[in-house]
Write a protein that binds this DNA or RNA. Sequence first.
DNA 1: TTGTAGGCGTTATCAC
DNA 2: GTGATAACGCCTACAA
Lengths: 337, 337
Amino acid sequence: MKPDKLRESITANDVAELAGVSRWTVNRAFKTDASISSESRRKVLEAANQLGYTPDLIAASLASDRSNLVSLLIDDFSNPHKLVMMERLTRILRHSGWGTLLVNTLDADDAALALVNARQHRVDAAVLIGSQFSESILAAAGGARQVKKLILFARYSADPGTISVCCDDEAAMESIADHVISRGYCRPVFVAGPQTQSAHVMRKETFLKRWQEARGEQVAFTVVETYDPQIAYRQVTRYLSGLNRSEWPDILVCENDALAMGAVDAIRYEFGLHVPDDIAVTGFDDTPVAANPNYRLTTYRQPITAMAEGLVGVLKGEYDADSLSHFVGRLVVRESA
Amino acid sequence: MKPDKLRESITANDVAELAGVSRWTVNRAFKTDASISSESRRKVLEAANQLGYTPDLIAASLASDRSNLVSLLIDDFSNPHKLVMMERLTRILRHSGWGTLLVNTLDADDAALALVNARQHRVDAAVLIGSQFSESILAAAGGARQVKKLILFARYSADPGTISVCCDDEAAMESIADHVISRGYCRPVFVAGPQTQSAHVMRKETFLKRWQEARGEQVAFTVVETYDPQIAYRQVTRYLSGLNRSEWPDILVCENDALAMGAVDAIRYEFGLHVPDDIAVTGFDDTPVAANPNYRLTTYRQPITAMAEGLVGVLKGEYDADSLSHFVGRLVVRESA
DNA sequence: TTGTAGGCGTTATCAC
DNA sequence: GTGATAACGCCTACAA
């Protein structure tokens, strides 16, 4: 049209002109399911390649009301397991055509704003892999329909309007409990994370219940206020210090590896004891450091790849169910218990 | 206009109607620098609040050619230091109005595609906090002007067309060298990461040069192919095994904490030796785990917050200079050296 | 300070 | 299979 290009960016129009087709045919060439002759597509792609054209996703979002963007909300940057999740999620989402907007919700107040922000970007879903999102935030987000879909990854929530993609924590904790029992430990203490309403609380309850059934005894527990090895270190130190040696546990069953690492360090460096001979430890997640010679943690590995693929399925609307909470991982037995 | 709202989303029009002003005044109310009477703004904001309206960023991006989005490219998910950087960057960017698009470029081939993807989302800049981006990728990205700005965070590049926001690695390495010398170590070995062209290579060279100047001796070095503690563990084991005990170093100066952690573990668990008495170790980054009782790493802390703020300055176009590479951190001395 | 065109680059949908 | 029209919701001018 305009012989002299003043504009920087090349649009479908430019490609159309060069390829000798209409603008709409150009766009069709970039969609997998469009009805277009292979000849047209070839011409278009050739011209596009020559011009360095790629479709503008912003414009597409505006017109289609689908952004192909997912926002990932995280409130915990001290657990290396989060890195693993991010790696897996971003890769798999990207291969399925979704971009990932990373949102830091370390400030609790910020989570609500983050949801608003997500809506402003028209994200197709908000995925929470944080650990401490309060139920109220979930409710607010779901209630006001801030985002199209609210998905909890690697965590369960009973909240309707929320979709959980997580492993079967109950089965997982049971397998840990069974392992602990079979190894002959008899005075476990459960090291729990922050007691938000839903969340991993289930892990604690499952273990306590299982132990009760099998051994007829109550299990003591202690609560760490953040999933942070350093905080866990302090809390475990404090907890053990408050006990008579005769009351000491022979194993600390931790809600995840971050807590377990702090526990191992405390046992070793605060009390000069040996893991597992004096006190054994189990974790959850099979974070890379769990295999580290310092820890050799017995832990539980969630099938993150499968879960991420499940998440994609949810985004594509392939599942009717509210939740995909029945992924099954496996116990990884190392020397710590 | 339409009495019956069939559309889901509320736009500026709806707010305008309720507030009794024009659509454009509504938009102005959401801009800090717009000329609008405080009375109008009040009315608009009230109406917006009532309706739950927030400006649509997608539409804004399309119209303004500014997305207020930055893409963050990462090719290393095994170094927990990345988590720290992400936390800081996302938080500070967000407080300045930028969202963060997380892009996984673990597949080297993927980095180029990722840049294209970034352009498709009209990101205002691509920020690389990866470690191994090859020069060719940088050149391609810069050359084809895939993105408006290409910024390297916490890493230096001499490549024109890229902007580095990093600390003064030379000064940093010098302070480590001086510390090593002052502690009386005399047979250092440098443990380097992947030898890409730019990058941290400077750290190795600076240390070698400084040592040469001070002691008149060459420093041996070994190369680890990935910034991963486990890989470092193996490489250090292999390297030390290949030496006669008489040739052994008394200190391993590592390019970063990830390598240092692997080194400490190898010294301890492969050879049954003690750090620092048998072999000392230094790191770089002051990752959270560096303070862990297992490591107590002497390391160097970069001023990440200041650097992140520098990055924001670059985004805002406040700096003329190509690079902001003169941030100064500080040596953190612990027990490992 | 406020209102008005014109345009940003797509997609949905209908005609041909 | 292809071309065309009307949104999508906002921003940048500029005019009132």
